[in-house]
C-alpha cells in the first residue's frame, strides 16, 4: 500500500533568508494519526503548508498517495489534503458559516442541491448544524474551530492537517474536538504544543526542531522521555504523569 504522505529531503527558505526546513523526511501511512510536535519556529507550520502545495519547496519532494506534488497535480492534491489553519478567523472569511463551508466544494464545481447536501453533511459531522446561518464573527472560539473543520471536511479530504487545533479552547470544547477528530475516517496530522492532547488523539509523534525531524516514536514512549522533551522545549503539564497499564 502506498503511504498517504511521503516527504523526501524537503528544504525551504523564506524570502527573508530564514531557513525553515533543512531536509525533512517523513512517511505517514493511510489512516494513521500523527502528532507533529516541537518548539516555536521548528518548521511545523511551514511543513504543513507544503503538504498541500501552498509553499513551493526549494528542493525535495512531497508525494500524496504516491502522487508527486507539482504544478499539474496541485489542484487535485489541494482537494485531497485538507488544511485547518491555526486561527479559525483566517479560515472563516465568508458572510455565513454555510457559505464558508460551501466555498471549497463550490470551487470544485458543485452547485445547487448537491452542494447543499455536502454542506449539511460536513456541518453535521462536526456537530455544528445549527451554526449554518450564523455569521462567523459571532461564534465562540470552540464553535469557530468546529466551523473551520467543517469547511475542510466539505472537500472530502483523505488527509487532514490541523495547525494547533486545541489552542484557545475551554476544556469542554477541547474534549468535543478530540471526539470529533477521533471519529473521522482520515489520515490525521496534528500540529500541537499540547502533549496530553497529542496523547489522547495520536498514537505516533514526530518531533521537529531547527527544520528537521529529530524524533519519531509512539507518543506514549516520547512522553516517558523527559530528556528528549526538555531538549526540544516540550513540557508535560505540572503534575501530569502517565498511568501505567
Amino acid at each position: 500500500m502506498t503511504a498517504a504522505i511521503e516527504v523526501r529531503d524537503l528544504r525551504f527558505a523564506y524570502p527573508d533568508g530564514r531557513e525553515a526546513l533543512r531536509g525533512v523526511d517523513l512517511a505517514v501511512g493511510q489512516g494513521e494519526r500523527v502528532a507533529l510536535l516541537g518548539p516555536n519556529g521548528a518548521g511545523k507550520t511551514t511543513l504543513a503548508l507544503h503538504l498541500n502545495g501552498l509553499l513551493e519547496p526549494a528542493s525535495g519532494e512531497v508525494l500524496i498517495g504516491g502522487l508527486a506534488l507539482s504544478e499539474e497535480t496541485v489542484t487535485d492534491i489541494r482537494r485531497r489534503v485538507g488544511l485547518v489553519f491555526q486561527d479559525p478567523n483566517d479560515q472563516l472569511f465568508m458572510p455565513t458559516v454555510a457559505e464558508d463551508v460551501a466555498f471549497g466544494p463550490a470551487n470544485l464545481g458543485l452547485r445547487g442541491e448537491e452542494l447543499d447536501a455536502v454542506v449539511a453533511d460536513a456541518l453535521e459531522r462536526v456537530g455544528a448544524s445549527e451554526l449554518a446561518r450564523r455569521p462567523p464573527h459571532h461564534l465562540s472560539g470552540g464553535e469557530k474551530r468546529l466551523a473551520a473543520l467543517a469547511t475542510t471536511l466539505a472537500m472530502e479530504p483523505e488527509i487532514l492537517v490541523l495547525d494547533e487545533p486545541g489552542s484557545g479552547l475551554d476544556p469542554a470544547g477541547r474534549r468535543m474536538l478530540v471526539e470529533t477528530l477521533a471519529g473521522l475516517d482520515v489520515t490525521l496530522i496534528v500540529i500541537t504544543h499540547d502533549l496530553p492532547f497529542a496523547l489522547e488523539l495520536c498514537p505516533r509523534s514526530v518531533v521537529m526542531d531547527g527544520g528537521r525531524v529529530v524524533a519519531d516514536m509512539p507518543t506514549r514512549e516520547l512522553l516517558a522521555r523527559p530528556d528528549l522533551l526538555a531538549e526540544h522545549r516540550l513540557e508535560l503539564p505540572y503534575g501530569f504523569t502517565l498511568a501505567h497499564d
Binding site: N52, F85, D90, Q91, E99, A102, G104, N107
Partner: peptide, 24 residues
C-alpha cells in the same frame, strides 16, 4: 498579513481567483 493568511486558506480550498457564486 491576515489578508495573506486568508488568501492561503482560500487557496487551500481550491480558490482560483473568482469568488464562486452560490445562489442563483
Amino acid at each position: 498579513e491576515r489578508g495573506e493568511r486568508v488568501h492561503s486558506a482560500m487557496m487551500a480550498r481550491g480558490y482560483t481567483g473568482e469568488m464562486p457564486v452560490l445562489e442563483e
